[in-house]
Design a protein around this nucleic acid. Structure first.
Length: 261
DNA sequence: AAGAACTTCAACCGCCAACGT
DNA sequence: GACGTTGGCGGTTGAAGTTCT
């Protein structure tokens, strides 16, 4: 169900919306935009509330995960650098599967990303392909012929990393494709949001580059301070914010429309 | 060209700790 | 102290993309 529909449902028949099945599966670019808007407004906390008022029909957990693993402006995209790979190995040696702890030592990388990397590495190891991604290249070129192998060979790594770095996502991941299919990237989405910014004093660029919202820390937004008291009157707040979600919804639509080729 | 095999990674689930009431 | 809620964490799954045959 599209978020707009969910929003409308919440307004028209709250009971039905309440019992409607929570949406699962891949996020649409529209949902992404909507989530970004609401995180922008309220900061990275109270995810259940945020999920409710945004009309996304997602769980708070799902919203948080999407934000942390994909939408957060501080995230790096693309393959890990050899330095990062080495660090992951070192830290895993030290701490074991404490992915979030390891992730804190790699700015811009998520625990999920590191976990996936490690899992891939271990699978390759189990198959006897490469003892260590960092210490030795794949034993058999044919077995690692994929351009996304774990080899530290610079040219192979650059092939994907540079594409991500330039904002031209390669179509590999599920959600990455959602924007790729449509012909625009998350960078473009962020730019569009910045361009259409009309709420609050904080520049969206400030937020995007992390100066207004440090990764892993609370959002130091003046707007948040203003809204702090609102959290305590949850029910009324939901009612008020639900109407706001309509406004955001139309803003999101405009952003998407302006991105259409 | 087509299908199989492989790889990547987003997203879900369950558990648990922290916090508030 | 008991209980409920929220959010964080680690494990796992499956869809989609890529490469191989």
């Amino acid at each position: 169900m599209a978020p707009a529909t969910a929003t409308t449902m919440t307004k028209m028949m709250p009971e039905a919306a309440a019992v409607a099945a929570t949406r699962k599966g891949p996020w649409t670019e529209h949902e992404d935009l909507q989530l970004v808007w609401f995180v922008r407004l309220f900061g990275e906390r109270r995810w259940d509330f945020l999920a409710e008022v945004s009309g996304l029909n997602r769980t708070g957990k799902s919203c948080r995960l999407r934000w942390v693993n994909y939408l957060h402006p501080g995230l790096k995209r693309g393959r890990m650098t050899p330095q990062e790979e080495r660090l992951v190995l070192e830290l895993h040696d030290k701490w074991g599967n404490r992915w979030s702890r390891i992730a804190r030592k790699l700015p811009g990388r998520t625990d999920n990303e590191i976990k996936n990397y490690w899992r891939t590495l271990m699978r390759k190891k189990a198959q006897g392909r490469s003892g260590s991604v960092v210490s030795s290249p794949p034993s058999s070129p044919s077995s690692a012929s994929s351009n996304v192998s774990s080899s530290i060979d610079g040219s192979q790594l650059d092939l994907t990393a540079t594409k991500y770095a330039t904002g031209s996502n390669i179509p590999t991941g599920n959600s990455l494709d959602l924007s790729e299919v449509k012909g625009y990237t998350m960078d473009q989405i962020w730019n569009e949001i910045a361009a259409s910014e009309s709420v609050g004093d904080l520049s969206f660029e400030d937020y995007k580059d992390g100066s207004a919202c440090i990764m892993g820390g609370p959002m130091a937004s003046p707007l948040w301070e203003d809204c702090e008291s609102l959290w305590r009157t949850h029910t009324e707040d939901v009612r008020m914010m639900t109407s706001m979600s309509d406004l955001v919804d139309s803003n999101c639509k405009q952003s998407i429309d302006s991105l259409e080729p």
